[in-house]
Structures are given as structure tokens and as C-alpha cells.
Amino acid sequence: MTEKKYWKWKEIETHTSINDLPPVPLSLPNYGSLGETGDWRTFRPEIDKSKCNKCYICWMYCPEAVIEIDKDGYPNIDYVYCKGCMICAHECPKKAIEQVREKKEPEGE
């Protein structure tokens, strides 16, 4: 998996009082600010590289921006953050993304 690029923002501010708040709150892009959302998944999208024609439509449509392009030019899904919405599978013109039900280990047993 490619190395994580964490967003660095120079103007990032931490506020301690109402007097130094800007007029409106802003949120900056941040890698996984909600935690590791991959475990929300019911279905896992799996890319069949033999069918993929590298059109990158999945990359463009991914609402969570968890699809990255690897060295060989294939899309690669980051399963740590992919929530399994399956939009990529729905949009894929080559039907190269398969919908696989996640099998979760029962917890605490």
C-alpha cells in the first residue's frame, strides 16, 4: 500500500477563546479524521485487474477519495478507509469491480 500523505496546513489554528475565533469555522482536509472507517463496510469492492482498462472512472467517482493509482497505473483501493458504498462498482464500465460480502470475525469469542 502506498505511503499515507497527511495534509499539512500552515494556517491551521487551535483556538482557546472566543476572541480569536475567525468569523466562520473552517474544516481542512485531513486523512481519516473520523478514524479508520473501513470497518463500516458490508460489501468490499475488489478490482479484477485483468478486466481493468485504466479509465479511472472509479477513481473519479469515489466519494471518499480512497482509490489511488499504483505504479503500474491500476487503481488501488485503500481498505482502511473504504466504507464499501460500491459506487465504484456501479460506475465501472468494464464490470471489473466485484461486490464481495465482508465476513467479520465474531467479536470477543
Binding site: H15, I18, L21, V24, P25, L26, P29
Partner: peptide
């Protein structure tokens, strides 16, 4: 300069928390 506006601000309690400024923004 990607940013988002108007995100959730939590209620907060007696201690200052970086995600709890809703009340303060209304007062502003």
C-alpha cells in the same frame, strides 16, 4: 486551498474542546 464550511460543532461542556464552538459562533 480545499476547505469545508459549516461542519458539525458539538455542544461541549465546561472545558474548552476544539470541536465545540457552536455556541460561540452564534454569539459572534
Amino acid at each position: 486551498r480545499p476547505i469545508t464550511h459549516g461542519n458539525l460543532q458539538n455542544p461541549g461542556g465546561p472545558n474548552i474542546d476544539p470541536s465545540c464552538w457552536y455556541y460561540e459562533y452564534r454569539y459572534l
